[in-house]
Design a protein around this nucleic acid. Structure first.
Lengths: 110, 110
DNA sequence: TCCGTTTTCGACAAAATCGAAAGAAATAAA
DNA sequence: TTTATTTCTTTCGATTTTGTCGAAAACGGA
């Protein structure tokens, strides 16, 4: 049981779900990533990532109960689970600590 | 040619190289990650990641010219390239922006 | 030659990625 | 009412990149 961590894209999807709060589903997640990261991924990619995150227990899904205005299939909305929130928070903390530990000289140009 | 991005572990290795500055090589990188991330990876893993980062142009390697005190093969020291620095800085910026965009309510417990 | 350190090699699992096609559900058109 | 259209979800199969090892090879003193 190795892969208990988050991959790079998995993390971006988690952050997107957090940002979108109560409107996170395939399409909106895809757009969020496109806008913020200037990175085009297909809807298939988003779905395969969200599935994996569900399996890991980092994301929970529910069906949209509200009536859609003009047609369309029910949306599958995602929210972060408690362990999901903890996972991304921890990664952030570790990276920030590492950034702070980099000596200035290592980042100067030349 | 898709994979121009950094993977999760690749990023950690880059940060470690920055932290270690003029003493970044297999062993020290491995330890840095172990200490900071509480994550045990083998030395083989570190080497395969650094190789890939070199190919991507994010890391540059040189051999240690100094005489080793007590035996052992020459070390291969790594430093961040200009594009390498830019790559990790960009990832950091994007993630910070995303974190700031997450509404408080999405992170509260419950 | 022997020992300890470090890198290279070859292999495999997990994550990232896509395209295409098939459901669903609600509404608009016939 | 029946059919078509729209908007999304699901699923499948396939391929490239990343992540991960264990073992072998290469050094460089002692």
């Amino acid at each position: 049981m190795k892969g208990t961590n988050l991959g790079e894209l998995e993390e971006l999807v988690m952050l997107s779900v957090g940002i979108l709060y109560n409107d996170a589903y395939g399409l909106t997640i895809q757009k969020e990533i496109k806008n913020r990261c200037k990175r085009a991924i297909t809807i298939s990619t988003v779905h395969s990532v969200t599935s994996r995150l569900e399996e890991k227990g980092y994301l929970r899904a529910r069906y949209d109960g509200a009536t859609p205005e003009r047609g369309g299939r029910r949306k599958r909305l995602f929210t972060l689970t408690t362990s999901g929130k903890a996972a991304i928070a921890k990664m952030r903390e570790i990276r920030e600590d590492m950034w702070n530990a980099i000596p200035k000289v290592a980042l100067s140009n030349g």
